[in-house]
Structure formats: structure tokens, C-alpha cells
């Protein structure tokens, strides 16, 4: 070899550092999952293997209730934010550069930059005013809030996919007698689909584990899984919380695997 290129992998201690990083990343999660099978009352002292906490969590109506609500909110937020993000991505890429384009990007991605607590407090105040004025209660407020902050997470992968798409394909479709709607339906959308699915998945997962905004925007009796667990912290902590977390983790892993397989097939 004539020249040596710089390679991080060849630095001394690379392997050790890498292993350490992975231990720090995954040891807490492994501990959490392991202790969900703990027979004792403690989250920290091992008392033998048991599935009791899963049974207990499964039979806990508050947990069931919170899980159903979490899934409902996440599904609604994912669908709404993905639809909005798709339109936003089409509107910001399918045209010549225009004045204020950067400003629009920043506005769309605003939830990524503004501290979540600021959004949460401002939504609390706004929703309070709306509730007082209209008297309308319900889960809609939380769904609305989640849909809003999920938009940039859905927007980014969709836009990336659109930017990588050959515009000539749409011209070709029009040349072959496709109306603008047919072009979108039969060419743009199918090619965009992996990006749309990625965006929806990301939005779903982000919504599913949100605590801050949910805590501030929910009304009484509207606990989601994460806010329920936060509530449990104030009382006695049992491995039931580990069991719930492990199930949430399993759900996420299943979703991400499904997404990976879907996109790999499409490319």
C-alpha cells in the first residue's frame, strides 16, 4: 500500500473503548429486563425467577387503560403528523428555491429545537384557555399536541427520500398520460413509501414514550403508560415497573425490526 489512510479502528484502545461504550449503553437495559423476572419485591435485590410481575401488570386495570390510551394517541399522532409532514415535504422540495425557504425549514423543525418544557407549558396555558372557552374536554388535546411535535420526526426521512428521487420520473409519468393525481398515486407515493413508513414509525415511537408534553396537557384520568409509570415512582417502586418497561421495549424492537424488513424489501 502506497498511502495509509486514517482509520479510527486502528487507534490504540479502540476495541476496549467500543466494548465499554456498548456496556454502558446496554447494561442498564439488560438489568431492567432481568429484574422484571425478579421474584422479590425489590427492584435491586434478586430473589429468584418469576413471571409474577408480568401477570400483575397484565391484570392491573390502570396499566391496561394507560396502554390502550398510549397506543391510541401514538397511532393518531403518527397518522396525522405523517400526513402533514408528507405534504410539507412535497411543498418544500417540489419547487424552485424560494425566499424564506430556510425560515420555513426552521419553522417545520421547531419542535426539535425549542425545549420541550417550553412547548409543554405553552400548550398547558393555551389548552386551559380553550377548555374554559368551549367546555370541551377529552383526549383530543393530547393527540393534537403529540401530532404537532411529531411532525419534524416524520418530515425529515420523507424529505430525505424526496430529495433523492429523480424528478424526471414525474415528467415521464405525465408524458405517459398520467394526470397530476395519477402521477402522485402511481409514481411519487410508491417511491416515497419507505420514507413515509420510516417517518410514521419514528413519530409513533416518539409519541409512545413522551412524558413532558403529555404530563402537562393531559386531564385527570388520562394517564399514558409513561405518565402512569412516573406516577408509580412517587409510591413504592416494584419490579412491576420493570415488567411494563420490558413490554414497551419489546414493542419498540418489534416495530423497528418490521420497519427494517419493510424498507430493505422496498430498496
Amino acid at each position: 500500500m502506497a498511502t495509509k489512510t486514517f482509520s479510527v479502528a486502528k487507534l490504540p484502545g479502540f476495541t476496549t473503548t467500543a466494548i465499554l461504550v456498548f456496556i454502558i449503553l446496554y447494561l442498564p437495559i439488560l438489568t431492567l429486563v432481568a429484574y422484571s423476572f425478579n421474584a422479590s419485591q425489590s427492584v435491586a435485590i434478586w430473589g429468584g425467577f418469576s413471571l409474577d410481575w408480568y401477570v400483575k401488570a397484565w391484570n392491573n386495570d390502570a396499566v391496561k387503560d394507560a396502554t390502550v390510551r398510549s397506543l391510541l394517541i401514538a397511532v393518531c399522532a403518527a397518522v396525522i403528523s405523517t400526513a402533514v409532514a408528507t405534504m410539507a415535504a412535497l411543498g418544500t422540495t417540489r419547487r424552485k428555491a424560494f425566499k424564506g425557504q430556510t425560515f420555513i425549514y426552521v419553522m417545520i423543525n421547531q419542535p426539535l429545537m425549542v425545549p420541550e418544557i417550553v412547548t409543554a407549558v405553552s400548550l398547558l396555558i393555551l389548552f386551559g384557555m380553550v377548555k374554559q372557552a368551549t367546555g370541551i374536554q377529552g383526549i383530543g388535546y393530547v393527540i393534537f399536541a403529540h401530532s404537532a411535535f411529531c411532525i419534524p420526526f416524520a418530515y425529515l426521512p420523507i424529505r430525505a427520500r424526496l430529495e433523492g428521487m429523480d424528478l424526471t420520473l414525474e415528467t415521464a409519468a405525465a408524458d405517459l398520460y398520467a394526470t397530476p393525481w395519477q402521477t402522485f398515486r402511481h409514481v411519487t407515493l410508491p417511491i416515497l413509501l419507505p420514507g413515509v413508513i420510516a417517518g410514521a414509525m419514528l413519530a409513533f415511537v416518539i409519541s409512545l414514550d413522551d412524558v413532558v408534553i403529555t404530563e402537562f396537557t393531559k386531564s385527570g384520568g388520562q394517564d399514558t403508560l409513561p405518565t402512569y409509570m412516573l406516577g408509580q415512582m412517587r409510591r413504592q417502586l416494584t419490579p412491576e415497573i420493570n415488567a411494563i418497561s420490558s413490554m414497551l421495549l419489546a414493542l419498540t424492537v418489534v416495530l423497528l425490526t418490521a420497519f427494517f424488513l419493510l424498507t430493505r424489501k422496498n430498496d
Partner: peptide, 20 residues
């Protein structure tokens, strides 16, 4: 007239075949 209403078809330089 928009392209989809013209009885004229094009072979593109990049071919522009639909990848899906």
C-alpha cells in the same frame, strides 16, 4: 396543452424508468 393530453411520447436521456 399539458403533456398528459398530448398523443406524443418521449424517450428520456436518463430513460426515467419507474424503479418500483
Amino acid at each position: 396543452l399539458p403533456p398528459n393530453k398530448r398523443p406524443v411520447n418521449t424517450v428520456f436521456q436518463s430513460y426515467a424508468l419507474f424503479p418500483h
